[in-house]
């Protein structure tokens, strides 16, 4: 599935991934293949991304919105840094 992490200033991440873990407002959750269509707000915390080659990346965010639909995930965040 395809993941994009976008801030108003730049695109932080774009690519095929195996798993993403998100700090949802209603609690932390993970998104895997064939996840149901979801729109959720995110609170401050860490996003964990696992790519197919097993590479892990973490992003610190201050809140945002995520949309999951048809195995494409788009995360809109205000400010974020690669950790």
């Amino acid at each position: 599935m395809y993941l994009e992490i976008i801030t108003p200033e730049k695109k932080l991440f774009a690519g095929e991934i195996e798993l993403v873990k998100l700090p949802g407002t209603g609690g932390s959750f993970e998104v895997l293949m064939n996840h149901a269509a979801t729109i959720s707000t995110l609170m401050a915390g860490k996003i964990k991304v696992k790519e197919f080659n097993g590479k892990l990346s973490y992003f610190d965010i201050q809140g945002g919105v995520v949309e999951v639909v048809n195995n494409s995930i788009i995360i809109l965040v205000d400010t974020a840094g690669l950790v």
């Binding site: 949802g24 407002t25 209603g26 959750f29 149901a36 269509a37 979801t38 729109i39 959720s40 707000t41 639909v69």
Partner: peptide, 8 residues
């Protein structure tokens, strides 16, 4: 239009 799950 999709049947979205809205969280929270």
């Amino acid at each position: 239009i999709n049947n979205y799950i809205f969280e929270p």
